[in-house]
């Protein structure tokens, strides 16, 4: 076991994948000499050279479009999108080309492209540096979408994403880059939990709380806090957003009868909507209360002085838990 930050864990995973397969090529802006604006690719240029760690022109469509060509040639490109809000110029190449090439060519051409996206807010940054665009991609057939919440998963799942023959969007919660955790670098990748599987990170019996990425630690804190009031929360880290491991969520909800979903991304059409609808569909008879969503608002990402209001935090999540339990809450009127 080694103690690593999430950023260092991704770096270690990238290194391992590059050592294992010379067809793995990193592409992105400032990923070479600088090592990325978050230093995730730090040191890789020195060790693997500029052909395998390519600083690209500042053109996201260009990065993804050339990655398609490299994949055509048999390479496994790993593209870094510098910030979530910079991915939109590449949207056409991702949804019109990367996602469909395998389907279009009837399986002849694979697109083993990994798209790394630092995402989410909480860092007090400028506009376009705090978005949560994951739902655009979970709505697109042909893509796999995953999000990591801790250094061990970050290390393992970047390797799984690169090894996957389908295109994978790998969302990195940038405000957790510097959180440290234990990482087992020696465990064989084949023994790891599949990247499509969700993980129960806190066991509980009263409410199922589903989240991913940056809010996983917040949800765990909420579970600990709720114990003080005698409420037992089961926290599920989705890890995979496409496909969603509904079996794990469903099994939990059948036990608890109550579902709360929380994410930073906007409310309408978000992952929470999909989970609420699908779980209602799968186990309606087991639900004791309508599913509750605690999410970012349907607003453009706000200025940093307002972001703490936009982002779900421990108290808002617990308020949602109270709603699911039909306990006094902000909407019912809190008794004093």
């Amino acid at each position: 076991m080694t103690t690593l930050t999430m950023a260092k864990a991704i770096n270690a995973g990238l290194r391992k994948s590059m050592e294992a397969d010379k067809r793995v090529i990193l592409m992105g802006e400032d990923i070479g000499a600088l090592g990325g604006v978050y230093r995730v690719t730090d040191g890789l240029r020195q060790d693997f050279g500029r052909r395998r760690v390519m600083d690209t022109p500042l053109a996201e469509a260009g990065i993804l479009g050339t990655a398609v060509g490299l994949a055509y040639r048999g390479y496994r490109p790993v593209c870094e999108i510098q910030f979530d809000g910079f991915i939109y110029p590449a949207f056409d190449q991702i949804v019109s080309q990367v996602s469909r090439m395998h389907y279009r060519t009837r399986g002849a051409v694979s697109m083993p492209i990994t798209i790394r996206v630092p995402f989410g807010g909480g860092i007090g940054s400028a506009e376009h540096h705090s978005d949560s665009p994951e739902a655009y991609f979970t709505h697109t057939a042909g893509l796999r979408v995953i999000s990591v919440s801790n250094p061990q998963d970050a290390y393992t799942m970047i390797q799984q994403a690169i090894a996957c023959n389908d295109p994978v969007l790998y969302f990195e919660p940038k405000r957790r880059y510097h959180v440290k955790g234990e990482v087992d670098e020696s465990a064989p990748l084949d023994d790891a939990m599949p990247m499509s599987a969700a993980q129960i990170v806190a066991a509980g019996t009263d409410v199922t709380l589903v989240t991913y990425g940056s809010l996983v630690p917040t949800a765990r804190d909420a579970a600990i806090a709720a114990l003080d009031e005698g409420v037992s929360i089961e926290v599920i880290d989705l890890r995979s957003l496409s496909p969603i491991d509904f079996e794990t969520v469903e099994a939990s909800v059948r036990k608890t009868g109550r579902l709360v979903v929380t994410h930073e991304a906007a409310h309408s059409g978000g992952l929470g909507a999909e989970i609420a609808a699908s779980i209602t569909d799968r186990c309606f008879d087991y639900l004791e209360h309508a599913p509750v969503r605690i999410t970012g608002f349907d607003v453009p990402y706000p200025p940093s002085k307002l972001e703490s209001h936009h982002l779900p935090d421990l108290d808002r999540i617990l308020d949602g838990v109270d709603r699911a339990l039909a306990r006094p809450n902000s909407l019912s009127g809190v008794e004093d």
Partner: peptide, 25 residues
């Protein structure tokens, strides 16, 4: 030969990326 591209111009990037692969090889 790649299958025909309908999004006009998208394939120019694919050709360029493929050429980078040729170069590496």
């Amino acid at each position: 030969m790649a299958t025909p591209q309908i999004i006009v111009g998208a394939q120019t990037l694919h050709a360029t990326g493929y050429a980078l692969g040729i170069q590496n090889d």
